[in-house]
Nucleic acid binder design. Sequence first.
DNA 1: TATTGTTATACTCTATAACTATA
DNA 2: TATAGTTATAGAGTATAACAATA
Lengths: 155, 155
Amino acid sequence: MEEGQDTVVVRDADVDPVAADAADDFFVLLSRMRAHFLACCAALDLTSGMGSVLRGLSGPTPMREFARRLGYDPSNFTGIVDRLEQRGLVARRPDPDDRRVRQLVLTDDGRTLRRDLETRLLADLPLFAGLDEPARRTLRDLLRRAVAAGDGSAG
Amino acid sequence: MEEGQDTVVVRDADVDPVAADAADDFFVLLSRMRAHFLACCAALDLTSGMGSVLRGLSGPTPMREFARRLGYDPSNFTGIVDRLEQRGLVARRPDPDDRRVRQLVLTDDGRTLRRDLETRLLADLPLFAGLDEPARRTLRDLLRRAVAAGDGSAG
DNA sequence: TATTGTTATACTCTATAACTATA
DNA sequence: TATAGTTATAGAGTATAACAATA
């Protein structure tokens, strides 16, 4: 299945071709990874938001801090957690030190479903398509470095 | 069952830790790249859809084929192209061979704005944060391989 | 009858502002 | 006064179905 043999990508002279190519491919993978994640969530009757929260939650975490870490606005976060709580996958716990705060925790059912989601997600990762083990480790290391560098400069 | 109740359970035993780490970092970068792209588009008064179309368009392309390549549903695509056309950045051209088809082309203004968008986008790419030139080339090559492998198996 | 592009519509995701209860 | 979480609401993105023009 060849695609667009004649559609030559026109590139301007003053842009970095390495960055341009990497950005192009990253956006393609972004689309595929997003679709893959959505499909895995849908198979477990989860929205992408519910899946992200389930994936990201490990120990008890204040809701606001957790929302910020995942890049969600607190106003969205409430509804996502509501649906997870109605499914019995997470629970809101009062914080004894600050009664404004609610700690979010995984239930046993939540832990089980989280593992199921993780297994599905990693089984056929588009990001790793066509890469052998050494290449996968290299890719992991490079992504790690990019994330760590971004943590320092921009949040 | 094998882990303590409130201890920080980050990872299950039966998942590939390399894939899990890579997926985690990829999703972080996905969020940052998306935010970066949105900011670049917004600076030029473009929605993300308009920016994607502008970026992806090079030669004259039938709308349906183009929409499919970018992963858009044709029903969304019409509105995005409408706004680009109203801004004078793209034009719909009749296809002489099939009068149902409309070829999408960039105008001169479109080309200029596309270069501006590309320059902004690549100037400070979160994907490349903290990576030197050899690392960037390696990352580009790995992403290219993953995309190419996915082209073959899943469209 | 099938296909291209369009319209209408609904559903989800996301962000802003106002509200409550605490601090 | 400021902060954590919530609610209401509006905007943008996305998908399905029906439609007109054309094949």
